[in-house]
Write a protein that binds this DNA or RNA. Structure first.
Lengths: 197, 197
DNA sequence: GTCTATACCCTGATAGAC
DNA sequence: GTCTATCAGGGTATAGAC
């Protein structure tokens, strides 16, 4: 028989983060209580504080982990050489990665306002550094004369918003497959920064 | 001298909605207490219940008013006849309207999860009916052979997300003027649904 | 490592005086 | 129309037993 109490620090920690991620995404950080998270995990509320100093650190940890993994994952991609291909690669990557992690994405973008200034600045910096990757692609393409851009910074903000929006409506097993969605967004993105006909 | 207490129902109601809108947008619905709203308005918490039956109705009212005004305002526009111009008109309208009301926009998009099923369905229907306006423009343009669209529904979702994202970064008095932002987004939107060069 | 118990505060909402 | 006072419940976080 399994012991009722015992050492589970290696699995309880991840379970807490997983439960918090799901609940925060579903109901919002402020609307979720530590008691709810604990109930989801199957421990008492007090036990959570063995794994996080407080509720906000739990949130900030989720955001940081997500953004760091996102950036690290992007950096493992072998860069396509042509700006056109590079942008298509970014779109595919961004959509694919985000479609698989809708909860983490939602939290990282929407719960920033629940962070105190220091933590906010830290998370915001990570987000900016990811967005800078896209902006660099656009600037390179512009310098190479492949893209026609009045303002690369604005274009990168516009594209990021467009791409991330896919998590608002995409459902596994829906009308369009993942690959189809990736290609359609890539087509729109490429056209939006291309030369006028 | 002004009376300390008296009849103010004509101004207190709007003040409550304005305070709630600002606070909900800034901190999130769940994180804001009725006492905070009351303090902002300058009344006691109990007085709020003369104007709303409960906290959630206050939220739903803000969302409904915003979306109904948005749709009504769009319908006052004289439709441009050419799909090209019509899309540009929509982009200008959408960005202009949203830039002026960042709080209402944020709430209407982000606090849906705090609504109970009935209210959620009502608000969601309003949002869909607005999105359908864009989708209709895209379909018309596709039928006229002006736009090249693999999937009008996906394209409308992509464009709405792109356009609405402007509220995340635009600041009055920033590097780009309103008119510039509207034009740059319109250019990108038009190119994204245009024929390939 | 987890539990029970609890401190202390804030929540939404209501009742009744003025 | 607004106030004060209040209720019952739930919030985060901690203390100390096991």
């Amino acid at each position: 028989m399994a012991r009722k109490t015992g050492s589970h620090s290696d699995i309880t920690g991840p379970k807490i983060r997983a439960a918090a991620e799901r609940l925060f995404a579903r109901h919002g950080y402020a609307a979720v209580s530590m008691r709810q998270i604990a109930a989801e995990v199957g421990v008492q509320a007090g036990a959570l504080y063995l794994y996080t100093p407080d509720k906000q650190s739990l949130l900030a940890g989720l955001m940081r982990d997500h953004l760091e993994a996102l950036i690290a994952s992007w950096k493992t991609q072998t860069p396509a050489s042509h700006p056109h291909d590079r942008l298509r690669q970014f779109v595919r990557f961004h959509i694919g990665y985000h479609i698989d992690r809708p909860d983490a994405v939602f939290i990282a973008y929407m719960e920033l306002r629940n962070l105190e200034p220091d933590r906010f600045a830290e998370i915001e910096a990570l987000r900016r550094s990811y967005e800078a990757e896209l902006e660099a692609i656009l600037r390179d393409g512009q310098a190479a004369g492949v893209f026609e851009l009045a303002d690369p910074r604005l274009a990168s903000m516009a594209l990021i918003a467009m791409l991330t929006g896919v998590t608002n409506w995409y459902r596994e097993g829906g009308r369009l497959s993942r690959a189809e969605v990736e290609e359609l967004y890539a087509d729109m993105a490429l056209k939006s920064v291309g030369r006028v006909a």
